[in-house]
Structure formats: C-alpha cells, structure tokens
Design a protein around this nucleic acid. Sequence first.
DNA 1: ATGGTGGTCCTACCA
Length: 289
Amino acid sequence: MACRRAGGMGGVQVATGPAAVTFKLATWNINSVRLRLPIVAQLLEAERPDALCLQETKCRDAEFPLAALRKLGYEHIEINGQKGYHGVATLSRWKMKAVERRGFCDKGDARHLSTKFLDGPAKGVTLHNVYVPAGGDEPDPVINEKFAHKLAFVDEMRDWFGADGVAKKKAILVGDLNIAPLEHDVWSHRQMLKVVSHTPVEVEKFAAAQAAGPWVDVMRRFVPENEKLYTWWSYRAADWRAADRGRRLDHVWSSGDVAAEARSLRVLKDARGWERPSDHVPVLADFDL
DNA sequence: ATGGTGGTCCTACCA
C-alpha cells in the first residue's frame, strides 16, 4: 500500500519561495462509479491527486455518490451523467466551476465536461474530461452506425479545437478517447489494423483533432514512441497479465504552456488486478504549475 | 477459432 502524504486539511505540498507547486491529475474510465466506489476510494487514498476525471460513470446525476467522495476530501465535484450509459465526472480538492457540458453529434449523450480551477496549483486552468464513443465492432461507417458516430465525433472535436482555440493555453484534456493512435499503443499493430480503435481512418482523424488544438500528447513526452504503452486490457482474456494484449485508449493532452511544466507520468497497471477492476487503469500526470 | 467477460437493468444493448 502506498503511504498517505503527510499534511492536514487538503494535504497540500507547499513550496518555499516563488517555486511552482505540483498539480497531480488522474483520469480513469471506471465502468460504473457506483459499483467501483471502493477502488475509487483506494486510488484517492493511495495517490491523493488534486483532481480525478472519471468516464463511464453510468448513472444519473441524482444517483452519483457525491457524499462518499466528498468525505474522502474531494469537496468539489461536477458531473454530467445519464441513465445506464456513458457519463463523466470531475472531482477536485480545489474550488472549480463547470464551464461546459458539450453535446456532440446532437445525440444528448453525456460525454464531455469542462471545468476551470478557481484555486490551488492549477488555478486558471481549464480541464476537459472526454469520453469518445467506442464505435462498435465493424470498422465500416456504411454498415455500422456506431463507427460512423465515432468518426463524426472525432471530426467534431477537430472542428471545435480549430475554431475555438480551447487548446491555445492553460488547458488540459483527458479521458477515454477510445483510439490507440501509435504503433506501440497496441500489442500488435499488424493484427489491429482492422480492429476498431486502431484502424487507419480513426488514427488519421485522431491526429487531425490533436493537431487542430494543437494539443501535446503528454504521455508520450515521458514514454518513447518505440515503447509499448497500454491503459486498457480486455475483460475477455483468460489471463490479461500473461497475454498483455493491451491498448492505449486513455490520453492526457495539454496546451503547450502546460506541457512545458509536465514533470511525470504514470500508468497504474496494478489497478487492473484490483478487486472487481475496471478494464481501464488510472493514468496520473504531475505538472509543476 | 469468431468466442471470450462485464455493466446496466429486464431484455437487450453496450463496452
């Protein structure tokens, strides 16, 4: 078990003098926040991130376990939920305000939430929490409406980033983007070329959306592109660890000014083996803002 | 070789 950081209310690390203060951010596709409240608590107690972005909360706003999470020190919570599917939530130890709950593709799905920190080390930073559609099994938009939706969603992100300048400065975007863009973001590039999440058409659109920001791929600033890097392992493997057929579906992007202050990146692979796990693991990033 | 597992919520749908 990791040690709890010393400190009283908030456990703030205070730097002396004008030095920057570390902002610790986590993102995790939780696959039902109610079912997995025990391991959300486990993560928060072990790592004490300043903020945690959750995807696939799978509950209406009225059913979100606000009280339990506030009790753990995360008093500031913004949610965008819906019944049974999708849903995102951002928890923070610092005061923040909701900026937008963007509805993509005119579908009314709860797949985006942006918040702005009003206090703490990331004061003034806007944080986007995104859950991109998975896209179904068949990688042909003509016969698979879910794949068509995924492609349209990523195109809409690209147009929004390009028009709005949301990534110009003081911005972070995290979440389950459901695309593994690089060759070593999947266990076998060759065998994944026709598998939704790594097809050339998705990867091309993903790259265009990232470039439109432009957003920096913070994870790959710390892990070279020729090294395997995964954040998701299927439930359908007999032994996920032995097979290790993972994919990097979860991402941390930031504007260039914030990326320049990125200090560390960790993928908590062990969480895939926790009690009743999500098929995704938490990704943590530290910034000296 | 075309399954395999897991979540929501009642029968499929989604990942």
